[in-house]
Write a protein that binds this DNA or RNA. Structure first.
Length: 590
RNA sequence: GUCCUCGUAGCUCAGCUGGAUAGAGCACACGCCUCCUAAGCGUGGGGUCGGAAGUUCAAAUCUUCUCGGGGACGCCA
């Protein structure tokens, strides 16, 4: 359905037109002086010059046309030329009642559905997830859900790091630790075992060990590189072993991402495009795009309009080896063939902006993508500790994601036990749900591009702009609805009983609900989950204010009570749908 | 050196397609549970929006310069 701001603007534009002024001057915005009015229009001042008239005269002319408006209870012209607007209660009530009847509470899906691939997550196999992987997962997941909700066809691709030097390091070290494995026997011709010859914890132990040693030991490093080569050139045993590494690692990654309520549609890795690289490189040479510079194969990506130096995009290193640019470009090529996306969004650290700019330009220049394929870089800032520096453990190391989550859950558990008498089991289960909300809301409520400070005390607090506060509000509503049901009434029966508001806090709540479709749409267009956070925070505030002023269950007027129950149910639905778009959920009790 | 980005209350952040007294939260000081979860609600103090100039009837918002933090700048990603 049409956004409430548009209905209001249309009414105002009509008035401008009727009064003999340009229609577009009637644009209405949310009031920045809530003490004076609910919405405002500044068009009279913008039009003063054009019509050579004092703004207040224009405003008066327009206000006169609105005296019998079905939308405005009050439309007054105020010096120097503001039009201050107050909505009719009936109008607000009717709008919200209509929202209730719609599947997506008044949100209209996009009229131009696009096929979108979102590249996020980006973990490496055989390495545990750490806090550096957190933002990509959280933001990417939310952006994916929002776009999908808006009606786009969205594919989430994890883009696994599963192919380069790390694989050789692991295999080489494995060869040293378990030399008798059949995978290393070049003369072995039988079937390889189905069971992997290692566990995930062994794997996670091997990589850092091998990585460290390779930096100190040249011969060791050479052996590892030989292993990488054997893998990449398709030696059977190495391929089989590699499959085990991937399988064990992916199982573990899936478990960890699941805990974060993050899910990918595609688990492709760099390995998936390995075979495409030679052909792609050939095409770039044949097309006259790629040439040798300083020993390396590069494609120029400078453009006329550039104000800065853009170095060429490197396709092959001077030793002939592929690098990340190569796999990223080949991945674009593969996606264009298989998914045929209209848009590819990369949710990665903002420091990679220049790098991706080069890759995008190169992809465009070499015709890997169509002219109208949109390549979007969605960069995010660093998660910092309280000292403003990149987040570290107390010992100064990189914190594992599991540890971070455990720490939050512990804190949540403590808070639950403090405030309520519940069993340890229930408290632990609730702590997980609320903890995830604390973590994700803490991240998403900031603009993605900015660095932010991770503060466990602040994020887990139920005071202020936090996940737990939002969840607490939902739980309160659920509790009232549950009690209503217990009294033998049916919430569903009063589903659409919403009426015009009878007091100010109810009206405020309704007007906030009415902004739902505009908020979600803006969040989608701008890839800005933080706008949803801001919206639901305002909504939760509006509800809690209403809650304190209104005794709902003890209301004697049955019709009025039914209207409130319907309003509460709508508020709950809007809040729960919104947090689902952010990637977390609410418990029934907390 | 070049380019990008950020600088708003003691702290953490909104607002930035220009509009009336710059908003939240935390912290601080008060007040509110015979009543639907007080993990809540309300009241109060606190800011020359880093600085300067310009455009405009109107600038936190646009332009230029400047200071400060962070970042990027061909064989890492």
């Amino acid at each position: 359905m049409e956004k409430i701001i548009e209905l209001i603007s249309d009414e105002m534009k009509n008035a401008f037109e009727q009064a003999g002024y340009e229609r577009e001057l009637g644009k209405v915005t949310l009031s920045n002086r809530p003490d004076l009015c609910e919405y405002q229009c500044n068009g009279a001042m913008a039009g003063a010059k054009q019509y050579k008239k004092a703004p207040i005269m224009i405003a008066n002319d327009v206000a006169a046309k609105l005296s019998d408006s079905s939308i405005f209870a009050k439309a007054e012209a105020v010096a120097p030329g503001f039009l201050n607007l107050t909505l009719k209660n009936e109008f607000v009530g009717a709008y919200v009642k209509k929202m209730r009847a719609e599947e997506k509470y008044g949100l209209e899906e996009t009229t131009k559905p696009a096929k979108i691939v979102i590249d996020y997550g980006g973990p490496n196999v055989a390495k545990p997830l750490h806090v550096g992987h957190l933002r990509s997962a959280i933001i990417g997941e939310s952006v994916k859900r929002i776009a999908r909700y808006m009606g786009h066809n969205v594919i989430g691709d994890i883009h696994l790091g599963d192919w380069g030097q790390p694989m050789g390091l692991i295999m080489n070290e494995l060869k040293i630790r378990k030399p008798d494995l059949v995978y290393f026997d070049d003369n072995y011709t039988g079937e390889y075992p189905a069971e992997p010859p290692f566990t995930i914890s062994e794997l996670e132990d091997i990589y850092p060990f091998a990585s460290k040693r390779s930096k100190e030991d040249e011969a060791y490093k050479a052996d590892a590189m030989a292993c990488t080569y054997k893998l990449q050139s398709g030696v059977k045993g190495y391929r089989a072993l590699w499959n085990h590494i991937i399988a064990v690692s992916v199982t573990d990654l899936k478990r960890n991402y699941e805990r974060l309520n993050v899910a990918f549609d595609l688990w492709n890795g760099e390995s998936a495009v390995h075979d495409l690289i030679p052909g792609m490189v050939d095409d770039m040479k044949k097309g006259g795009y790629a040439y040798v510079s300083e020993g390396a194969l590069v494609v120029d990506v400078k453009e006329e309009a550039d104000t800065k130096e853009i170095p060429p995009c490197m396709i092959l290193k001077s030793d002939g080896a592929a690098l990340y640019n190569t796999t990223d470009l080949a991945t674009i090529m593969m996606r264009m063939e298989t998914e045929k996306p209209d848009r590819i969004i990369y949710v990665v650290d903002k420091r990679q902006e220049l790098y991706f700019d080069q890759v995008f330009r190169c992809a465009r220049k070499t015709k890997l993508v169509k002219d109208d394929t949109e390549l979007k870089f969605l960069g995010f800032g660093t998660m910092n500790g309280k000292d403003g520096k990149p987040f570290k453990t107390r010992e100064g190391g990189v914190m594992r994601l599991e540890s971070l989550i455990a720490e939050i859950n512990e804190e949540m558990f403590r808070k639950i036990k403090e405030s309520r008498d519940t069993s340890d089991d229930e408290a632990a289960a609730t702590a997980q749900v609320v903890g995830l909300a604390a973590l994700k809301y803490g991240d998403l409520s900031n603009q993605a591009v900015k660095d932010y400070i991770f503060d466990i005390d602040r994020f887990t607090s139920s005071e202020g702009d936090t996940g737990p506060y939002i969840l607490y509000t939902i739980v309160r509503i659920k509790s009232i609805l549950a009690k209503y049901r217990e009294s033998g009434k049916d919430v569903q029966a009063v589903f659409s009983d919403i009426k015009a508001p009878v007091n100010d806090s109810e009206k405020q709540l309704m007007m906030q609900l009415a902004r739902y479709n505009a908020s979600i749409e803006a969040a989608c267009e701008e890839y800005a989950p933080h706008k949803i956070c801001a919206y639901i925070y305002d909504l939760a505030n509006a509800f809690n204010h209403f809650y304190h002023e209104t005794k709902i269950l003890t209301e004697e007027d049955a019709s009025r009570k039914a209207g409130w129950i319907a309003l509460l149910a709508l508020t709950r639905d809007v809040l729960e749908t919104s947090i689902d778009l952010l990637g977390f959920s609410a418990p029934d009790r907390m």
